[in-house]
Amino acid sequence: MARMKFLCDDERCIECNACVTACKNENEVPWGVNRRRVVTINDGQAGEKSISVACMHCTDPPCAAVCPVDCFYITEDGLVLHDKDICIGCGYCFYACPFGAPQFPQDGAFGVRGKMDKCTFCAGGPEEDNSEEEFKKYGRNRLAEGKLPLCAEMCSTKALLAGDGDIIADIFRDRVVRRADRDEKPATATAPWGWGKAYGDKSS
């Protein structure tokens, strides 16, 4: 079975935030919650880099490890999904997650947390596929419809890729190999870290 993955190519991301908006709209995400966000490092400086990030559907997910009620489950596609009926809103997954994926709609006074919400890879939740109930709690189940997550599908530069990890890796590898002449622009080298060492590029 395929192992689903996201990959964001920082050479291509132009920080347009279309993925963020697409996700919010497609999944009708609760108020105050953004399942995806674009972060720009060194914003405004030469060589700034943008990355679109959401839940990375970790192989050994810290969120699931600390959840006191064991509400996470891993699908056969390798997606880390959760059951909102079981979630108690303790926030532990949010403390543990490296990517800031789990978020909480505020629920009542004193900042009490509601049920955790995060990216589902557009794969819904434990309810029946594409049922009204599933949509209300988790958003669209595009995977069940044979589609990929909308954020990646509509990315204009195809920086954000989603799908079978093997295929995505092939696409990315292909890009890297064909990328602009790295011997001539070492300072802004587009090659991955270590490329110069491995392939004899003297300048990087």
Partner: peptide, 20 residues
């Protein structure tokens, strides 16, 4: 932390290693 248009505490932080 970097810049992000999304509002939220620590939203600009891509990776928080202390969680692990």
């Amino acid at each position: 932390a970097g810049y992000t248009a999304v509002k939220g505490q620590e939203a600009g932080e891509l990776i928080q290693a202390s969680g692990e």
